[in-house]
Amino acid sequence: MNIVVLLAIAAGLIALRFLKPNSLAWSSATWVAVYVFLRYGVVPPVPASVLTMFMFIITLSLAVYLTTTEDRLKEVSNAFVSFFTDKKYTIPLVVALIGLPFIVAFRVYQNLTQLPDPPVVGRTIHPPPPATITFKGRQVDLVDEDNPYRELETSDPTAFAEHVSNGRLVYYQNCVKCHGDNMVGDGLFARGFNPIPANFQDPTTIAMLQESYLFWRIAKGAPGLPVESTPWSSAMPAWETFLSEEDIWDVILFMYDFTDQRPRAKEVHE
């Protein structure tokens, strides 16, 4: 969040309050304030589609606000009527009547001359995993099997630390180039790929997945994804080519350790 923008918006709104604006002016100012905040005040930037959605909701709720009481409705309609009829507004009215068509024509020009956007392909981020996978000839049961070294966390902390430390080595030799030193998916090669590498610090990634799910994603990589997750464009390698089963479980331990997150627990099957 950009504090400077937030403070500027707050200052603007407070200053406007002293001018005792009517409901319409106040609502318009609110609309502008929300837009400025979402457009310039949020880091990282809000995607254009989300911005449009938010502004649609804001517009709708302001319209509801303005029309809930008779007084407010009257205030609003009077403001419009006086703009169209009062002598003192003649010049702004003429300017608006002539200016608006030009703005519309310019938008039409922009729309017709700009290049079309490339097709957008929808993509499922966390597809349901298969029940079992074959890892170097061995059947791995993704439903019931869990990280075999997780239990060491309580039973043998020293051995556990060794596994985490091996996972660290695996991470820095293999994963850091894309997923980055902070595990936020901003590694050296991240800029070259679309979709971008996963951000493990994000609470919606590894924190809501089971360790066996991560094992599947690491072992089988992009080529193991179902069609709805666009396996052809993801750059996630199938690490079964390079890593042993133990290495993969170890790097999973390290990922949770480094990001201070816990894996989602296994459901208990009757």
Binding site: A96, L97, I98, L100, P101, F102, V104, A105, F106, V108, Y109, L112
Partner: peptide
Amino acid sequence: MMAYGFATLLLG
């Protein structure tokens, strides 16, 4: 451009 422009003017 002209069509949309004139339509807007007319509406106004």
